[in-house]
Design a protein around this nucleic acid. Structure first.
Length: 290
DNA sequence: AGTTGTGTTGAAGA
DNA sequence: ATCTTCAACACAAC
């Protein structure tokens, strides 16, 4: 699930806890091939953490060879900061060293990658479905790390209304699919596309090319408003997402349409409908989203 | 107990 | 080019 606000929350937490720390050792139980060789990162210092779309970028410095670790959490990946007992055998299961109720929550127990940091804390990746994509590139080569096709970030100040219109207008696909197309615009997934289109009062099935400039402007405003609100509320934990301390985000409590099938529309009372758009479930109000 | 659906994405097929 | 389907994987819900 992690979309822009959830990844933003991860990055926010990591910035506060891991910048300046040195990687002492790396552990993973993922099969070789699911992640690059990371042993070379031992001794590297974490210089910065950033976000691009739904990717977490961790900038590392080691004498003579700077690099950037790009992690895409896909559906269930999330970073945690804590302490775990690192297994020595394959049979042994990894588990938290403390009785921290959050780190012991099931969602947070699927640890597949751990960086042991200077100072004793560890940076771990929990990912029940193991879809997270982990990429390591030399610094300056992030453009070749699979991020080169990424469209402008949905919260970038550089993404003006004019550029937004150019990015999404003229597309024949349904507007919901266009908003979720990371090559056109990065950071939005199923949850926030539903939320944005409900707020902008636009039917998610409509072709982007048929939208008026006024309608695109409404979508742009709703996009900024909702993403900023969700960032402030530290994301949505409808499913697996947790922050770096294992705690839930609160946007889910404030959501307006996602996952509210058959509930009354918060604007007009009509029962919320759902349909499939491009293979994804879409929730919308059949009355006031035109 | 087997089937179905799930937030993402990219590759493969039409 | 453009759209749809499926696979990667594990689990919860039915």
């Amino acid at each position: 699930m992690p979309e822009l606000p959830e990844v933003s929350t991860m990055v926010d937490d990591l910035r506060r806890s891991v910048i300046g720390k040195k990687i002492k050792s790396v552990w993973s139980d993922l099969p070789p091939g699911k992640l690059p060789r990371l042993t070379g990162l031992c001794g590297a210092t974490i210089k910065a953490v950033d976000r691009r779309g739904k990717n977490v970028l961790i900038y590392l410095e080691k004498t003579g060879q700077d690099s950037v670790l790009a992690v895409h959490p896909r559906m269930t990946g999330h970073f945690l900061i804590g302490r775990w007992r690192i297994p020595r055998s394959r049979k042994e299961k990894i588990k938290p060293l403390s009785a921290d109720v959050f780190l012991n929550e099931k969602t947070n127990s699927y640890i597949h990658l751990v960086f042991v940091l200077s100072g004793g804390e560890m940076l771990a990746l929990s990912d029940v479905r193991k879809f997270a994509k982990i990429n390591l590139a030399a610094a300056g080569e992030t453009e070749t790390g699979g991020l080169e096709k990424l469209g402008p970030d949905a919260l970038s100040p550089k993404l003006t209304l004019n550029k937004f219109v150019k990015a999404i207008g003229q597309r024949k696909k349904p507007i919901k699919s266009v908003l979720m197309d990371q090559k056109l615009l990065s950071g939005i997934g199923n949850i926030y596309s539903d939320e944005i289109l409900w707020t902008a009062e636009i039917d998610p099935r409509r072709s982007a090319e048929g939208l008026s400039s006024g309608e695109i402007k409404r979508i742009y405003s709703a996009m900024r408003l909702l993403l900023l609100r969700a960032v402030r509320l530290r994301g949505t934990s409808f499913s697996d997402f947790r922050d770096a301390r294992g705690r839930k985000g609160h946007y889910g409590d404030k959501r307006v349409v996602y996952g509210l099938f058959a509930y009354p529309c918060k604007r007009c009372g009509t029962p919320i409908a759902k349909t499939k758009i491009g293979g994804r479930t879409a929730s919308f109000c059949p009355n006031c989203q035109k």
